[in-house]
Design a protein around this nucleic acid. Structure first.
Lengths: 150, 150
DNA sequence: TCCTAACAATTAACATGTTAAGTAATATGC
DNA sequence: GCATATTACTTAACATGTTAATTGTTAGGA
């Protein structure tokens, strides 16, 4: 095999392709988020809180796809910015419950439409049908792969 | 909309789905790589070098999907382990050329089959046809999205 | 009740992601 | 041939990813 053919193999490998595709998509969001002083991960956390309301750290981490140690650090930053608040769960002293503040909700309401507009562009460029098809395939991949090796 | 419906929207959003899918796949590789003292990114760099032969840092970064500042740090580690060597390009004093050492190639030859075996399991679990379909869709997404907003 | 296991969150340590700025070498236009 | 821009790589600073260990709390069983 030539070096080009070998590299082509890597180029078609699932982890790489998923990484590249995600990077292509996120490249469109990052400049807008950065202009608001947000990282991609912080934006995920804020969105989940605005959608779900008050949530304990474990569920927040799960929904935002962020590992607990990362979340702990981020929550301090977000709380420092006044966008969220945390309190201890009275029914279970181990849990911390987090929610967006009024200021946080206003901030989210400012950023949200800009994110939605960018997402629209991506959907338009790719096609709504293909997007649905892709998302379904990715869901199926996740399901089958998680079940397989456990 | 209920909180569940709002969360469902996030669950179907492209960046999140791509992230989750990639995580599902990588979760199968990481334990094996860790057992060899490798991170996922280090393994990508070693594989690219073993496939392409000597390569300058820019192309290496591109093929391994790693940003140049990250690569600079990693290359020091990999060189410290004796798996790769770097030398300056005589035709262009700006470039650094990297290649796997003999020891590195032996190491890669040890890890490679284990990675291939895991990949096989994933392909089997998901289906070869669906995998090809998925990779094609991801490639197309990347192409169309990159062209759209530039 | 008491001991232990399990759980939730956190801390620590190291590796990578991300952007901006810096350094050295090369390319370009005049 | 020289000033300038561009390129390749690096450094710096901060944020997150990743694993392991720690702390405090709750749950279960003898």
């Amino acid at each position: 095999m030539t070096a080009e053919q070998l590299l082509e193999k890597t180029n078609r490998s699932l982890p790489i392709v998923l990484l590249r595709a995600r990077e292509s998509v996120m490249a469109h969001f990052r400049p807008m988020l950065a202009a608001h002083g947000l990282t991609e991960q912080q934006w995920r956390v804020l969105r989940v809180l605005s959608e779900a309301g008050e949530l304990d750290a474990s569920h927040l981490a799960h929904h935002a796809c962020i590992l607990p140690p990362s979340l702990t650090r981020m929550l301090k930053t977000l709380e420092g910015n006044g966008w969220i608040v945390g309190r201890r769960d009275k029914n279970d002293g181990r849990r911390m419950l987090f929610s967006a503040t009024e200021e946080g909700l206003r901030f989210i309401a400012t950023v949200s439409p800009k994110g939605a507009a960018i997402y629209e562009e991506i959907v338009d460029a790719f096609g709504e049908d293909k997007l649905r098809q892709l998302v379904d395939l990715l869901d199926e991949l996740q399901t089958k792969v998680n079940g397989a090796a456990k």
